[in-house]
């Protein structure tokens, strides 16, 4: 499972945790998130997320 960071505001999408409040189940891979999803903190779209290693 990987983590992705919004380049604009630093929000982290953690595939392990998903975003249950937004209907994204734990374990959902970043590429499987619905296309109309955007960063919940700043609105940046998925293209502007970067893969980060922790």
């Amino acid at each position: 499972m990987r983590k992705w960071r919004c380049r604009n505001c630093g929000f982290i999408y953690d595939e392990t945790l998903g975003l249950p409040d937004e209907g994204i189940a734990p374990g959902t891979r970043f590429e499987d998130i619905p296309e109309d999803w955007y960063c919940p903190d700043c609105g940046t779209e998925q293209d502007d997320f970067e893969l980060v290693d922790y």
Binding site: R7, N8, C9, G10, D41, C42
Partner: peptide
């Protein structure tokens, strides 16, 4: 990676 709009949850709403 300018941060003139701030960063994090308080990043500029109208950016």
């Amino acid at each position: 990676p300018q941060i003139a709009f701030g960063y994090g949850v308080h990043v500029c709403l109208g950016q």
